[in-house]
Design a protein around this nucleic acid. Structure first.
Lengths: 175, 175
DNA sequence: GGGAGATGATTAACATGTTAAGTGAATTCC
DNA sequence: GGAATTCACTTAACATGTTAATCATCTCCC
């Protein structure tokens, strides 16, 4: 049922004998976002690497500097990491003594994490370089344009937040 | 030396006793791009999953429908995958008989890949759903706004392409 | 034409993304 | 007040991202 309906929107597919046209692949939104993000991260990664940090580890440490303590779940939300990834990284960062962890007061399930003095020192060593890079990007792209881009990205995120994934109907049809 | 110069741009850091302020973390460009892309992919992933494909496998198959044959290096560029990732995925896709691979005519180093009939069939089963999702996103976000966003993303990419990563200076300083 | 270097692809090793399952602790609800 | 459920976090398993190393070919140049 869902199949039939979906098939209706498929463009004629005999034009090129064995191709499903679709949008030209490299211009799809996911690819545009992926390439843009990679172009940005390519600027930051070398500096992080010089300090022995991955992008995700940096995100976590950066998020921890925003408050004294934070629960793991909240940290996952802020650093935009899935639970399993966060678990592994926290284990490693704790082993490197860059963070500290303790149980929450009223709930033994929850863990509370904070950055250590050593972690702060590392952050302070990396942050200046990151700021320089960020400033260079802002200057070359244009501060106003950058702000506009970020607003459009936020709007996209907000737009999609209210969209249940359309692929779900298909699952039901196949059950 | 690099340290001293970089330190100059660090804002006063005694305001909060133990924080390096920087830009509010969640509003950084990399995070904005990451969240936006994730919001988009969240729409597509369930459908791909229902067909036994990951996002990257889909990218490869999609890229292969654009031409009869393509060299592995060119495929990596188009699908925006690093060589090692592509190597692994091609091995799996070949094992599943979704693609075919042969050596190039004049250069035994190069491999040439093409999509199989089975792969094409799979693409044709997935594409309609993807189109529906893409159309829904376009409609809700606005076609004009979406085009503008993609143009700005492309411009960002182009801007950064000409930027050697700033972290490199730091390496030299530490050698 | 043969050896040094360049090139295309793969493999290795480690870190993360992603989904599912597991574990222990709190909540609910009867 | 205890069984069932929910919740926070972790583990497990597999796929990919990332960098370095390897391997086979190819090119160039003497």
């Amino acid at each position: 049922m869902a199949r039939k309906k979906l098939d209706e929107i498929r463009p004629e597919d005999d034009a090129s004998a064995r191709r499903t046209p679709m949008r030209e692949f490299s211009r799809s939104l996911p690819m545009s976002l992926l390439r843009a993000r990679e172009a940005v991260m390519r600027q930051f990664r070398p500096s992080l690497r010089n300090h022995g940090l991955t992008e995700q580890q940096w995100r976590i440490l950066r998020a921890l500097t925003a408050g004294d303590e934070i629960e793991v779940t909240e940290l996952a939300r802020v650093a935009f990491l899935l639970g399993p990834s966060l678990s592994r990284i926290l284990r490693d960062l704790e082993a490197r003594a860059l963070i500290e962890r303790r149980a929450a007061e009223n709930d033994a399930r929850r863990a509370v994490v904070s950055i250590s003095a050593k972690g702060l020192k590392l952050i302070e060593a990396v942050a200046p370089t990151s700021e320089v890079i960020y400033a260079a990007i802002t200057k070359r792209y244009g501060a106003r344009k950058l702000a506009e881009l970020q607003e459009m990205l936020g709007a996209l995120e907000a737009t999609l937040a209210g969209m249940g994934s359309a692929g779900e109907a298909e699952v039901e049809a196949e059950d």
